[in-house]
Amino acid sequence: MSAISPSAAKTPESTSGQPLLSVRNLEVEYRTKRGRVKAVDHVSFDISTNEVLGLAGESGCGKSTIAHAVTRILKPPAYITGGQIMFKSTDILGMSDDELRAFRWEHLSIVFQSAMNALNPVLSVGAQIIDAIQAHMPVSKDEARARALELLDVVGIHSNRVDSYPHQLSGGMRQRAVIAIALALNPEMIIMDEPTTALDVVVQKQIIQEIRQLKDKFGFSILFITHDLSLLVEFSDRIGIMYAGELAEIGPSREIFDNPQHPYTVRLMNSFPTISGPRIELKGIPGSPPDLVTPPSGCRFHPRCDVAIAGRCQEEHPELQQTSPRHFAACHLIDERKGNS
């Protein structure tokens, strides 16, 4: 098996057939006074129809930045400096403003990290669904409103809440309302950026359950972002692990769970309790994520890695390499193991 360079044609693919979303060598940077923060560095992945790809990693590793780059809602000081994002056969990065306006929400929508901030405080929930519908479809206000009521019902909000303002709803209901807005035009794909982080565990579980049902019902794909690895293992088909702006490992959930290849994945796994399992092993990861203005040389994880290979990991940057048909990881240890076996 050969290590694949990011530019090579062969990249971590999902299933056979054409992917719905395909991200290649994405690079995003924030231009700040301190210098350029490389928040996303040569990231590639695919998502196919009706698939859930989970993205996990510590705070600040660039998860939201990827989500915003794919939807092209990044604003200065963030700049996409390289790569390609294809949705079916259209190039998202090449779209004009008008094309984007028509494309987004109809094909691809996003659920923001914080539901409170994603809702306009001075408009009723209903109005915020209705204007999304009317922006894309030539329907009357009444028709749009009927659809809004339907959507609220789908996400489990009683229709008499349609004229409520965000501050009148509970945290869970707000999150459901945001999901309803994302569903408004029946998109093929929804990006969900930590849709349940601010909620308590019970509500969190309910909402995850509902998202799963909605997915089965409407058949959209999900790019699901979270800190919570155990949640991902249950919920997603495949998982990507990010570290310091790079993809450290990507592969089918079970495989990542049973046979993690990257030391960071192993650590991350140990630092979270599993939903089903006993809540005991709670080791944090020692050290802190690197400063992305001046990332460490070689493997970005080496300063925190206790199995780093002296010399090599400081010097040489590991590329993603295949360890099983759909499993890729970027770690020099894989070579070592291969050499030993």
Binding site: R31, T32, K33, P77
Partner: peptide
């Protein structure tokens, strides 16, 4: 309040 100038720094 350095935030005020950050965005104008590197164009």
């Amino acid at each position: 309040n350095p935030r005020l100038t950050v965005e104008k720094s590197e164009k």
